[in-house]
């Protein structure tokens, strides 16, 4: 049996909003490590990896590893019925075909149960190799969201280049071109406002802005975002989920054939 109690239920609500437009159906895996998900978008260009560590839950019971296939749109519908301050408990029986989401108001005067049907999902689990990235950029997540949104009004591909000068986001379209350069800036009042550029080697890669924009749905989860780039690999766009885990989006680059 499985019983996971998350006091900060709004985190789970935000997590679902961050992935439901990218992935339709996915298996949530539950083990002693935590509650996790790995899934690709329907065109297999992007991959999302979510981990909510068991220590982040107030109560975490998972008697044996369990994989629960869920339609993320339906799960999102149910979680939208939870208040932002509600405590959310996820419950399931081993071998059962449903999962229950229980919402408790902070004052315990309202308790709701939503039972959702599980589904069988055939999904391949991919091995993500540990990599040394050529460049890693950390910046305010709202700034990254703004850049992706602005550039997608001009073009559909962003070129992200990291050099000694900073990180450059460029696009081109029918009406013209756009370049946005950010320089490292660590002299800020709040650490989350810093722009930190760690360049081991210069790198330049092209990506579809449509996916980048989709990743920025995770902006409410974290003040900062980390973008890791290597010329041989998909970019990793990572948002921390409070102290308990992360959402990592992997996006395959556009490459010359």
């Amino acid at each position: 049996m499985l019983e996971l109690r998350l006091v900060q239920g709004s985190l789970l609500k935000k997590v679902l909003e961050s992935i439901k437009d990218l992935v339709n159906d996915a298996n949530f895996d539950c083990s002693s490590t935590g509650f996790s998900l790995q899934a690709m978008d329907s065109s297999h260009v992007a991959l999302v990896s979510l981990l909510l560590r068991s220590e982040g839950f107030e109560h975490y019971r998972c008697d044996r590893n369990l994989s629960m296939g869920m339609n993320l749109g339906n799960m999102s519908k149910m979680l939208k019925c939870a208040g932002n301050d509600d405590i959310i408990t996820i419950k399931a029986d081993d071998g059962g075909d449903t999962v229950t989401f229980m919402f408790e108001s902070p004052t315990q005067d309202k308790i709701a149960d939503f039972e959702m049907k599980l589904m069988d999902i055939d999904s391949e689990h991919l091995g993500i190799p540990d990599a040394e990235y050529h460049s890693i950029v950390r910046m305010p997540s709202s700034e990254f969201q703004r850049i992706c949104k602005d550039l997608s009004t001009i073009g559909d591909t962003v070129v992200i280049s990291v050099t000694k000068e900073g990180v450059k986001f460029s696009t081109a379209g029918d009406i013209g071109t756009a370049n946005i350069v950010l320089r490292q800036n660590t002299t800020v009042d709040k650490p989350e406002d810093a722009i930190v550029i760690e360049m081991n080697e210069p790198v330049s890669l092209s990506f579809a802005l449509r996916y980048m924009n989709s990743f920025t749905k995770a902006t409410p989860l974290s003040d900062t975002v980390t973008i890791s780039l290597s010329s041989e690999l998909p970019v990793v766009v990572e948002y921390k989920v409070a102290e308990m885990g992360y959402i990592r989006y992997y996006l395959a680059p556009k490459i010359e054939e």
Binding site: M40, S43, H44, V45, A46, L47, E124, H125, L126, G127, I128, P129, T157, S206, A208, E232, L233, P234, Y250, A252, P253, K254, I255, E256, E257
Partner: peptide
Amino acid sequence: LKSQARISRFFRCS
């Protein structure tokens, strides 16, 4: 001209 690569080009089934 560049074309969109798929994830499977980089990550293998585990």
